[in-house]
Design a binder for these strands. Structure first.
Length: 354
DNA sequence: AACACGGGGGA
DNA sequence: TCCCCAGTGTT
């Protein structure tokens, strides 16, 4: 069977299914394409259009933008978000006035050097405005390529991104760069979407490795959410003859600062020894429990609750600010952390009676 | 609530 | 060089 050429498929699809009437496609000057590409960073087409037209009306060319105050630029940008883009846009306009005689540069490295313009945006501007041959690799194209070539690994990783740039270069045709560049972005935005991609309407389906191996939903590989560290602790449910439970006040800062909590010990330590050392208690461990996980924003805490009965609580004097014995019906009125409340609630049911 | 996003800037 | 951020829309 004949080799499928990505650009051929995409260009043929673009003819009937791509967008051809976007404002920045009408008069493809470098200035207009540049403005569009900056606005389109992290912002969808439908949102951009009214801003784009308003902006162009006020700043129809590069010099009007360069001469404007940053305040005026930001005012027109208001509502689009990511205002760093507007600052860089204005800064770049000034740079172009000073260093390029007011003409938007046509050399790739010069464009790349402007503030707010990276490799992909530089390529997109020159390809769309001048038909120069440059690969682009925005989020849409990354998704298309990751799926088409079944590229594993998070695209933000350098090695993966390097491979993606290589594929992007290899796929880029030598002609019709204006259409191809727009077509790839349109394909990613309307067909090869992050979720619910429309593979049945995709011009690349026949050659798509992810589609062939049913991995469309898994690719691109998502960013590994940084694995939270796991800490472990043992919480002691120490009850006396009356069923009252021992609570400790936590330090004012840190986790559960100032709340009442169950005494905690290192899960690897011997419970009887610790109870004797810390409180002078001879204790009887009733049971050990499988425990459960409580997750904070920055770590998991695996909690093992251990049920303990002590016969001599009255004999032991404690600092009432730090330790209380709390009767079973009384715990609800105390400021408890959620896991501690859960544990106490769970064990209150089976609280031993004297 | 988690995730995605292009480029800048700091480690 | 690599990582993380800012700031907002989408899922």
């Amino acid at each position: 069977m004949a080799q499928l050429i990505v650009s051929d498929q995409v260009l043929a699809w673009f003819k009937n299914h791509g967008r051809h009437d976007l404002p920045w496609q009408q008069e493809r000057t470098l200035y207009r394409v540049w403005l569009a590409e900056i606005m389109l960073q992290q912002t969808q087409v439908a949102t951009v259009i009214p801003y784009y037209q308003k902006f162009l009306k006020h700043f129809p060319d590069l010099s009007s933008l360069a001469l404007a105050s940053l305040d005026d630029v930001l005012t027109l940008w208001a509502g689009l978000g990511y205002y760093t883009r507007a600052r860089n846009l204005h800064k770049a306009a000034v740079v172009i006035q000073q260093q390029h005689g007011g003409c938007f540069p046509e050399n790739f490295d010069d464009v790349l050097a402007l503030p707010g313009i990276g490799r992909s945006t530089a390529g997109a501007i020159l390809a769309q405005a001048l038909g120069q041959r440059h690969a682009i690799l925005d989020g849409n194209v990354k998704r298309v390529l990751c799926r088409y070539f079944a590229i594993e690994g998070w695209p933000g990783k350098k090695a993966v991104e390097k491979q993606l740039w290589r594929e992007a270069e290899a796929c880029t045709p030598h002609e019709r760069l204006v259409d191809y560049t727009q077509a790839m972005m349109d394909l990613g935005a309307t067909i090869c979407k992050r979720s619910s991609p429309k593979c049945s309407a995709c011009p690349l389906q026949a050659g798509c490795e992810a589609y062939a191996t049913q991995r469309v939903a898994e690719l691109p590989t998502r960013k590994t959410k940084k694995v939270l560290p796991v800490k472990t602790t043992r919480m002691l449910i120490i009850t006396d003859e009356s069923g009252a439970v021992m609570l400790e006040k936590r330090p004012p800062t840190g986790i559960w600062g100032g709340l009442w909590s169950l005494p905690e010990i290192d899960p690897d330590e011997n419970i009887e020894n610790v109870c004797m050392q810390r409180w002078g208690y001879s204790v009887q461990v009733i049971e050990d429990n499988p425990g459960f996980r409580h997750t904070f924003s920055h770590y998991h805490l695996d909690i093992t609750p251990s049920r303990i009965i002590v016969g001599n609580s009255a004999n032991c004097v404690q600092d009432a600010d730090k330790v209380i014995w709390c009767a079973s019906g009384e715990t609800q009125s105390r400021a408890l952390s959620a896991p501690v409340a859960r544990i106490i609630d769970q064990y209150a049911q089976s609280s031993p009676k004297t």
